[in-house]
């Protein structure tokens, strides 16, 4: 009985720790854009539609190029789960169907905050997401979830 209780407490503590870790990553991820983008802020819905390729335009007509982080990284998993609303598995299934039916291709992915930031800074109309502490003046913050 005691053993069972201990196991439950350990599991609960583990779950809490994992939840806090995910929240920390999510809270630290910000959506950045090329400084040439006119918009000063994007909504969660706009970000979701852009990262799922449901739209490629901002309301002012700017064509957006989405820059992604690599698969199986904490920042990508947390960003898609908490902002876009898809778990890593759901995201893979989503793109598999899109690619298979010829309706689109997933955004190009780059390794790490520096590479993503560099691509966003150098590509007109580009947006991406990085950890909060990686932001500098070469990009602008469009959403801080």
């Amino acid at each position: 009985m005691l053993n069972t209780l201990r196991k439950k407490r350990t599991l609960a503590a583990l779950a809490l720790a994992m939840s806090c870790a995910a929240t920390a990553v999510s809270a630290g991820a910000v959506v950045i854009g090329n400084p040439g983008i006119n918009a000063t802020q994007l909504s969660v819905e706009q970000v979701r539609d852009l990262f799922l390729a449901k739209t490629t335009k901002l309301p002012d007509g700017t064509t957006v190029t989405v820059i992604d982080q690599q698969d199986d990284t904490p920042i990508k998993d947390a960003f898609y789960t908490n902002v876009v609303g898809k778990t890593p598995r759901q995201l893979k299934a989503y793109w598999a169907k899109i690619v298979f039916t010829g309706q689109g291709v997933p955004p190009k992915s780059y390794a790490g905050d520096q590479a993503v930031k560099q691509q966003v800074a150098n590509t007109p109309g580009a947006i991406g997401y990085v950890n909060d502490d990686a932001v500098d003046s070469t990009v602008k913050v469009l959403l801080k979830p």
Partner: peptide, 8 residues
């Protein structure tokens, strides 16, 4: 250079 390459 490698970091700048897409992993896609």
């Amino acid at each position: 250079l490698l970091a700048g390459l897409p992993a896609a």
